[in-house]
Amino acid sequence: MTLVVEIASWSLILLGSFFTLVGALGLVRMPDVYTRMHAVSVIDTLGIGMTFLGLAVQAGFSLVTLKLLFLMALVFFTWPVVTHALAQACLHAGVQPQLAEDRREFGRHATDVQGEGRPSSN
């Protein structure tokens, strides 16, 4: 039983570290600000989530676990606010995203035209 718990917590922490490294690598590799935000979102969701869950499993049922879960909830609720503010500030400042396709003009309409036969998504 203890061995199972140990293995579970270590694999969670290892996976969290892996996703943190991947997110930081994406932060350096991606071509412009908007795509870099997507890379950082991997750190702030899976990286922090898995690392803190692993630590919480290590701590067992205690105040430390409660604090870890609260810290996780704090990051999950504040991170989208910060990222949205950053993306909006970029748009306002006139930083043009490098786009493969701009669907802003038709958006919703384009989906209706394509209908059910969408080969690209699933």
């Binding site: 943190t20 930081a24 600000v33 922090i48 970029c90």
Partner: peptide
Amino acid sequence: TVFDRVLAGNTVGSLSIM
């Protein structure tokens, strides 16, 4: 741009929490 630096600073904040 300055927004890249703000994003990197925000990331440093998250990483330092971890």
